[in-house]
Design a protein around this nucleic acid. Structure first.
Length: 470
RNA sequence: GGCCCUAUCGUCUAACGGUUAGGACACCAGAUUCUCAAUCUGGCAAUCCGGGUUCGAUUCCCGGUAGGGUCACCA
């Protein structure tokens, strides 16, 4: 009784892909991979007016970038004749019709319904006199609906139902010959033997209309897996492009790791259950743990802070070499000359501080260029005066001169300086930090100085002394 | 407005009639012989409201309320 799992993601090429689409795709993909099933990419490009140039490529590039590989690919517009064939079947059976109603008239009907505070149902307004022969490519074909109540099951929402008032005459084939989504997704899902439809909330209320079409077509339907919507941050609205839903690719450009991104999205509306409190998942773990039972019914807010936390975890969990590979396009222009070994050492120092790879330049500037050190900065440490600062830096210089610049050796010398100078790390270390980096925020002092190297460190200490003396 | 869906800490969520309502993010405090992080420890903090059913409701039912969705020759 175990039918082959075949799922699809069906985006339309209308621009960039936002995280809601990726989340739906991810859940479907995880389900397919877990069950040794098939993940299908079907481009829903039957609305030629809304289609944007390069839209298909954007979809493919985005899915590839987030590692959601597909096993089969279809362009819906190429299936025009198949949709036509199924539509003709309905037409011949008298279950579909064309009419001579103008768009203006429909608008007027709609306005009328609105005025009467009633839902607009086409079937309430259309009359037999308006029916005309259907000419493919010339006029539109509509379903002659059969109003009735429906009960159905949703894998996430449970048992659902709707009354006959939810049923209406949907357009099946547009006058340009292309099928509408409402019609062709049903035909295509059937022909492609889709087992589960992963989709979001917005299709819930049209499900009875779809059931009406399935029935007219005399075919069964896949299982419905209706995901909760993703809500805009802080807001109570469904997250959409207009609410600032970002291009999924933007996250990657900001240095969100793909695995972190998928980890974050997978957890939006899904959790591994009561016995598993895991929050950080690798992709393989997600495939293993994912389950339809773990999907939630209520809308989830998109939480940037949570994404940052998850991304930080994934960054820290990465072996240095892997992180370096991923980091390559994030280094600033000033870091172009130095060799990769040096950059790796720098990276190791900031690995546990990174939330986004895009933070690399700002955290590492002083490793690659002369810092701007000012007298004010050097004397900004409370509890230190100019003469003392000069004394401290001189002592440090003297001590560092014959150091081998290993972290251990430097740490020892720093500790000895604390004793010799009878001061606290909060003062001495801060002074050296400022002198060497021009920054108040850096990695650990000994580690940082070790990576900077003897030559650079000595130079910077000397130049800081000069600044102080003026 | 009709219809459909949803409702637990600020946020993501666990609980499938019996728990001191658990975890995580965020926030706050402390620890980590230096800053910022990271890490560890501790703290703050929730069942939308009103009725039922039941010995017992976060959980089941009904009604409110709130939010979302939908009512296209868009998907």
């Amino acid at each position: 009784m175990s039918e082959k799992v075949r799922v699809r993601i069906a985006p339309s090429p209308t621009g960039y892909i936002h995280i809601g689409t990726i989340r739906t795709a991810l859940h479907a993909w995880l389900f397919a991979r877990q069950n040794d099933g098939v993940f299908i990419l079907r481009i829903e490009d039957t609305d030629k007016k809304r289609e944007v140039e390069g839209g298909v490529k954007i979809i493919k590039d985005t899915l590839e970038a987030v590692k959601l590989n597909w096993d089969e690919y279809y362009l819906q517009s190429e299936r025009k004749n198949i949709h036509k064939k199924w539509a003709e079947k309905l037409y011949k059976k008298g279950l579909a019709y064309a009419d001579n109603v103008t768009p203006e008239e429909v608008d007027a009907w709609r306005a009328d319904a609105q005025k009467k505070k009633k839902p607009f149902l086409y079937r309430d307004y259309i009359t037999d006199e308006r029916i005309v022969p259907w000419v493919y490519g010339k006029n539109a074909l509509k379903l002659k609906s059969t109003p009735k109540a429906y009960k159905w099951h949703d894998e996430v929402r449970g048992n659902l139902s709707a009354g006959p008032e939810a049923i209406d005459d949907l357009t099946l084939i547009k006058s340009d010959g292309y099928a509408t989504y409402n019609f062709c997704h049903i035909v295509d899902d059937y022909e492609m033997k889709i087992s589960h439809i992963f989709r979001t909330d917005e299709f819930l209320s049209s499900t009875p209309k779809f059931l009406n079409i399935y029935e007219a077509l005399e075919i069964g339907h896949p299982k419905f897996v209706t995901l909760a919507p993703i809500m805009a941050e802080g807001g109570k609205k469904k997250l959409g492009k207009r609410d600032g839903a970002k291009d999924a690719l933007d996250y990657l450009k900001d240095g969100v790791l793909v695995e972190a991104f998928l980890n974050f999205l997978a957890l939006l509306g899904w959790n591994p259950g009561k016995d598993n409190k895991q929050e950080i998942f690798t992709l393989d773990e997600l495939i293993k743990e994912f389950s339809i039972e773990g999907l939630g019914k209520s809308g989830a807010n998109y939480d940037q802070k949570r994404l940052e936390w998850i991304n930080g975890h994934h960054i820290r969990n990465l072996p240095l070499n892997d992180l370096y590979k991923l980091s390559e396009k994030f280094w600033g222009s000033k870091a172009s000359q130095p060799d990769r070994e040096y950059k790796k050492e720098v990276l190791a120092l900031i690995q546990e501080r990174l939330k986004y790879l895009s933070e690399i330049p700002e955290l590492t500037t002083f490793f690659f260029e002369e810092p701007k050190v000012t007298k004010e900065l050097l004397l900004s440490i409370k509890g230190i005066e100019q003469p003392q600062a000069i004394e401290f830096l001189n002592a440090t210089l003297e001590s560092f001169c014959d150091s081998r610049f290993t972290v251990e050796d430097l740490q020892e010398r720093l500790n000895r300086l604390l004793e010799d100078l009878n001061t606290k790390p909060g003062i001495l270390f801060a002074l050296i930090r400022n002198a060497v980096s021009g920054s108040k925020v850096t990695p650990g002092l000994a580690e940082m100085v070790s990576v900077l190297g003897k030559k650079v460190t000595i130079e910077r200490l000397e130049s800081a002394l000069l600044i102080l003396k003026h």
